[in-house]
Amino acid sequence: MHTFPDDVVTAVLRHMNDDHNDDSLVIVRANGAPDASRARMTRIDGEAGTWVVTTPKGERELRVAWSTPITKRAEIRREIVLLHEEALIS
């Protein structure tokens, strides 16, 4: 599994959690946490993104796979956008 440098992970997580919290909620609701009221992205790697979701039953971790394994920073954005677009039509 590919891992990204810590500075890349930190920047992506900060951006997602500060600027795209609503988008994260859309993604997690369509990918296994339909009753989520909050979502916070906590990890990324070459295979998936991971969020901590808050549901009526409490917090839990949800890992959502990318459409294909990735190795470049620019591919992270592409995959998150794709997850969001797919979530909107599901």
Rank of each mutant, 00 (worst) to 15 (best):
D22V: 10
R78I: 12
A36K: 02
P34I: 01
G46I: 04
V28T: 11
T42P: 05
K57P: 03
R14A: 08
A48P: 04
R78Q: 12
K57G: 12
T10L: 04
R29F: 07
I89T: 14
R14V: 06
R29C: 02
R14L: 08
H2Q: 13
A30T: 09
V8L: 08
P34C: 04
P5S: 09
H15P: 00
G46N: 09
R77C: 09
H84G: 03
S67K: 12
I89L: 08
P69V: 09
A87Y: 05
D23E: 15
R77F: 11
A11Q: 11
M41T: 02
V52W: 07
R60W: 09
V8D: 02
W66A: 07
G58N: 04
W51Q: 02
T50K: 08
R43E: 15
I27C: 05
L62C: 05
D19G: 02
V26E: 01
E59T: 10
E85Q: 15
G58Q: 05
T71W: 07
T3Q: 12
T55M: 06
A36S: 05
G58M: 10
V81G: 01
I44T: 06
R60S: 10
R14P: 00
R73S: 08
L62F: 11
I89C: 06
V28C: 04
I27F: 02
H15M: 03
D19F: 01
R29L: 03
V28M: 01
R73M: 07
V8I: 13
S67D: 15
D23S: 11
T68A: 14
A48T: 08
W66D: 09
L25I: 07
A87H: 03
I44N: 01
V52L: 11
V53I: 06
D23M: 11
R78Y: 06
T68E: 15
K57D: 15
D23P: 00
R73V: 10
T42A: 08
S37G: 09
N31G: 08
V12K: 04
T68H: 14
V9I: 11
N21V: 08
A39Y: 00
A33Y: 00
L88P: 01
N31Y: 00
E75H: 11
T71D: 12
E61S: 13
A36P: 08
E47R: 15
P5C: 02
W51A: 05
R40N: 07
D22Y: 07
A74N: 14
R40W: 03
V8F: 01
L25S: 01
V53R: 00
L13W: 04
R63C: 06
A39P: 04
